[in-house]
Design a binder for these strands. Structure first.
Length: 285
DNA sequence: GTTACGACCTGCGAGC
DNA sequence: TGCTCGCAGGTCGTAA
C-alpha cells in the first residue's frame, strides 16, 4: 500500500522520466479516476495538452507536477494506484485509467489503479498556512514526518490538546502526513506504545519516540525502494520494493515478537487491522 | 469545532 | 465447480 516511502519512490521516478516533457494528449479511460477534477475528463484533457511538466513534488502521500506557476497536475495513488512509464504502443494494463502521451514520441505516463481509490486532477496552486505553494487539495495536509521543517513542538501540543487515540492521530494527515496503516503499526511497535493510547496523556518523550520511530522505519523503507506485498505497489518502472521482509509487526499475526517472543496480535481498528505485541505495547490503564 | 464511522472500490482467498 | 462473504485500507462526507 503506497505510503510516504512508496510515493517518494514514484516521485523520483517522475522527476527522472516525466519532468521536462511536453504533454501531447491525456486520455481518461475511467471517469472515477478524475473525479476530483470538477470540470470532468474532457476539460482535464484539453487543459493539460501542450503543457510541460516543470517538476515533481510531494507532500505526504500527495504528488503533483506543476505545469506553470498557477496550476499543477495532482495525483494520489489511493490504495492501489500506480504511475508507470511504459513504451508508447505497449499493451494497455487491465486497470489503465489515464494515459499521457508526449510530444517527443517517447514513453507514455500511465495511471493504473485497480480499486480506483486514487485519482488525478488539474488544480490551482495556492499558499498553505505556512506560505508554501501547493495544490488546493493539499493545503490542509500537514508537513510530513521526514520534512526537516516539521514542527514537533506543535505536533506534541496538538496531541495533548486532542481527545483521541495515538494511531488515529498518526493516521490523521492534517497533523502529520505520509504515515499509513503499515508504518503506523511499525512505529508504534518500535516505540513500544499501544495504538489506542490517549493522546491527551502523551508525554514529550513518547511523542519524540514514536515520531523518531516513524522517521526511522520510513527512511529504511525508502532506502530499499518501499514496502511491497504484491504487484499492487511498484515504482514507475514496475519494480517492487523490498521492505516487506523487514516488518516487525504489520501482517505478522501469531508470529513471535522479535523483542519478547510474545505472539503478535491483530485487532480490528478503524475498519482496518492493527498489529501489535500485547506485552511490549500494553494498553493504557 | 471535534471526533468517529461508513462508503467508495476490486481482486483474492476461505468456506460452503 | 461455483457461489457468497470478508478482507485489504486512504480519503472524504456526514452524523453525533
Amino acid at each position: 500500500m503506497p505510503e510516504l516511502p512508496e510515493v517518494e519512490v514514484v516521485r523520483r521516478g517522475l522527476e527522472r522520466w516525466a519532468v521536462g516533457r511536453t504533454i501531447a494528449s491525456a486520455e481518461v479511460l475511467h471517469p472515477r479516476s478524475i473525479r476530483r477534477h470538477v470540470d470532468g475528463p474532457d476539460d482535464f484533457a484539453a487543459r493539460v495538452a501542450g503543457h510541460t511538466f516543470a517538476s515533481a513534488e510531494r507532500r505526504g502521500k500527495f504528488l503533483w507536477l506543476p505545469l506553470n506557476e498557477d496550476e499543477a497536475v495532482t495525483g494520489h495513488l489511493g490504495m492501489s494506484g500506480q504511475l508507470l512509464i511504459q513504451p508508447a504502443g505497449a499493451p494497455d494494463e487491465k486497470h489503465l485509467r489515464i494515459r499521457f502521451t508526449f510530444t517527443d514520441g517517447g514513453p507514455e505516463l500511465r495511471f493504473v489503479d485497480q480499486r480506483t481509490f486514487g485519482g488525478m486532477a488539474l488544480e490551482p496552486l495556492e499558499k498553505d498556512r505556512h506560505g508554501v505553494v501547493v495544490p488546493s487539495s493539499v493545503t490542509h495536509i500537514a508537513r510530513d514526518a521526514l520534512d526537516p521543517e516539521f514542527d514537533v513542538d506543535f505536533f506534541h501540543s496538538e496531541l495533548r490538546r486532542r481527545d483521541t487515540g495515538l494511531k488515529r492521530a498518526l493516521l490523521d494527515q492534517t497533523r502529520v502526513s505520509g504515515i499509513g496503516n503499515i508504518y503506523a503499526d511499525e512505529a508504534l511497535w518500535s516505540a513500544r506504545l499501544h495504538y489506542d493510547k490517549p493522546t491527551s496523556r502523551m508525554r514529550r518523550p513518547d511523542t519524540d519516540r514514536v515520531l523518531g520511530a516513524a522517521r526511522d522505519v520510513m527512511s529504511a523503507a525508502l532506502a530499499v525502494g518501499g514496502t511491497s506485498f504484491d504487484s499492487l505497489y511498484v515504482d514507475v518502472n514496475g519494480e517492487s520494493g523490498y521492505f516487506a521482509r523487514s516488518l516487525h509487526a504489520y501482517g505478522r499475526e501469531g508470529e513471535p515478537c522479535e523483542r519478547c517472543g510474545t505472539a503478535i496480535k491483530r485487532e480490528s481498528f478503524m475498519n482496518r487491522s492493527s498489529f501489535f505485541c500485547p506485552k511490549c505495547q500494553r494498553p493504557a490503564r
